[in-house]
Design a protein around this nucleic acid. Structure first.
Lengths: 129, 129
DNA sequence: ATATGTACCCCTAGATCAAAGGGTACATAT
DNA sequence: ATATGTACCCTTTGATCTAGGGGTACATAT
């Protein structure tokens, strides 16, 4: 498969990787069971840092577009085609948009909304990347 | 009425003002129709900036704890006692907490939640303080 | 030995924001 | 003239976040 990264682009590198893999799946250029290059391999080829590629891969795994088989490498997920069409982030955006609109209509200040938001994010026993 | 401000406290000055006025209303020390000191007057007494006091007053007005009558000054709102018990910010906190919990359970990253949040806040044609 | 994904630690460079203050100006009414 | 709330302008301080990188280590299996 072909992956091109534009370092000049304003879109984060890991995000470019993620969407390119998803696009390749939707276009049929990658299908269930296909092997992806290893993290270190791809990082080397594209002249990216390991962690940038690792981040993209872990996001793809969470979206079930990719399956990691430990030391055996990373492969396209059986349900990849379906899952590539689902955009978790857009759903999150919609959900948050609903709430903030309701809060604003109730007279809550933007500033207050932000403060309440960061409070929920810091209190809520955080881990994650 | 008595208002004491603790500059050393981690709680914002305007927030201290707001909660002290609400508390005074709940305790019956201030009741409907009572006049509050003017913004400039109170700022001078407490050695605060005008804008800090003005911010507190405008929040109190939004919460309908206080009523501003233009050049005639600021007075306690008829419904002040009821409205002093309502905490808009806690409600906002609860609402946001619900959504972020749902998003997290769906596998959305904290980072992604934050990004989606700021997107809703910036896109949504903002004004406000 | 070597390669796999993964999990930590630290760091930098930007951006954005809250809180508070400083200043100036305005219409309104006394 | 004076006082009222209000609406702008701009600034500083400190905090927090993203994206990205650097490094090191680990268990697993070939």
């Amino acid at each position: 498969m072909q992956i091109t990264i534009d370092t000049e682009d304003h879109i984060p590198l890991f995000a470019q990787l993620v969407s390119q893999v998803k696009k390749a799946v939707l276009d049929g250029k990658l299908s269930s069971g296909d092997a992806l290059p290893s993290i270190r391999q791809l990082a080397n080829d594209l002249d990216l840092n390991n962690k940038t590629v690792a981040k993209a891969y872990s996001l793809l795994e969470r979206d079930e577009v990719v399956q990691t088989k430990g030391y055996r490498g990373t492969y396209i997920h059986p349900e990849a085609k379906v899952n590539s069409a689902i955009d978790l982030n857009e759903w999150a955006l919609a959900k948050l948009s609903d709430v903030t609109r309701a809060l604003r209509e109730a007279g809550v200040t933007d500033s207050e909304i932000r403060i309440a938001f960061t409070k929920t994010m810091t209190n809520h026993t955080h881990r994650e990347n």
